[in-house]
Design a binder for these strands. Structure first.
Lengths: 182, 182
DNA sequence: CCGTAAGTGAACTGATCAGTTTATAGTGAA
DNA sequence: TTCACTATAAACTGATCAGTTCACTTACGG
């Protein structure tokens, strides 16, 4: 082997499959994406794909969780939690708006909402691997700010939810309404 | 004909089809519902169904709009707009929460969100035939209340959106999260 | 250079489903 | 009765798609 990099023990083309799946799922949705298309996009045979992932759902969950965790990490790293309260809250709001309006944010949200009747773990796992991390951060931050006398909050969880909802106020209907261009 | 009721000019079984479609769509979603099932539930042949509606999408839109308008009318009729501000806002909030947590509300929301990529008119028409009516009412009410010095609002549309979003604060994630029983 | 494991492509299975067609039957009015 | 309309059941078309199988090829480590 030319270089000393350790292949993820999963097999040579694991990441390739994941990346192809990401592309196709994000552009066609879950039901809309065909496994043949994914295999083609990944530059991999269908048999190979199925040697890594037991079925389409599992593959999708993997994609959603991976991508979601990435996004959440980015948000958490970006924000300077020691700035003045007003700035911190503003930054968090901006990060949320960015996510909600992003291609990925919109797609994954649609897929999770739309598919979660026939595919209940999906919604849960999606929530846990992304939004919930942010929410927890927000709760922590609120607690710290209250302890320092900078904010006045009694129900931290509710406050975090409300903050999140208010960030969406003007955006959300436009998403369902479908009037904003991609 | 035993009784003198006037059938809607569309044909004898029009409403029957609509009702069957309502049941099946609401319980299986759009993609999940098969036209055969709908015909069966409606007690009608598939050919008859297709003589009323050009295709599955159109049928679904009809169902969604009908049901949505019904719900919105109910909400508007129920609320006494002349009660004290606090009571009116409370009533509206209750009505919103009821809708969001209702079987129908959850289902139709999921379907609209999930399907609106491949089916963009759907989201728009849904929004216009339901949520937008409520929103407009809310804006009207805000304007009246401000004129009477009972509220202080500058951006009425934004206020209406924010009010709506705040009603969902604690509920919404649980819907995606999928932890509340039906 | 040989053996093993990973990968390939293409055909195949079995199933679902939207929408059409056909031959047939009931129904109401003239 | 007869005409026109509405409805029906069932078969059919044409398409899609998840997941499997198989005969074959690469690539790599020892």
């Amino acid at each position: 082997m030319p270089d000393g990099t350790i292949e993820p023990k999963k097999g040579r083309k694991f990441d390739q499959v994941l990346e192809g799946a990401r592309q196709v799922f994000l552009s066609d949705g879950f039901e809309g994406a065909s496994v043949d298309d994914i295999a083609k996009a990944a530059g991999v045979s269908k048999a190979t794909l199925y040697s890594y992932f037991p079925d389409k759902r599992f593959l999708f969950m993997q994609v959603a969780k991976t991508e979601c965790a990435r996004q959440a990490d980015h948000a958490i790293e970006t924000i300077d939690m020691d700035a003045p309260v007003q700035k911190v809250l503003c930054d968090i709001a901006m990060e949320m708006v960015d996510f909600i309006t992003s291609q990925f944010g919109k797609r994954i949200f649609r897929i999770c909402v739309g598919e979660s009747d026939r595919f209940p773990e999906l919604g849960r796992e999606f929530y846990e691997s992304g939004p919930m991390l942010i929410r927890n951060r927000l709760v922590e931050y609120f607690q710290k700010a209250v302890a320092q006398g900078e904010l006045n909050i009694t129900d931290f969880e509710l406050a975090a939810e409300q903050f999140h909802e208010l960030c969406k106020a003007d955006l959300f209907p436009r998403m369902v309404f479908n009037m904003t261009e991609e």
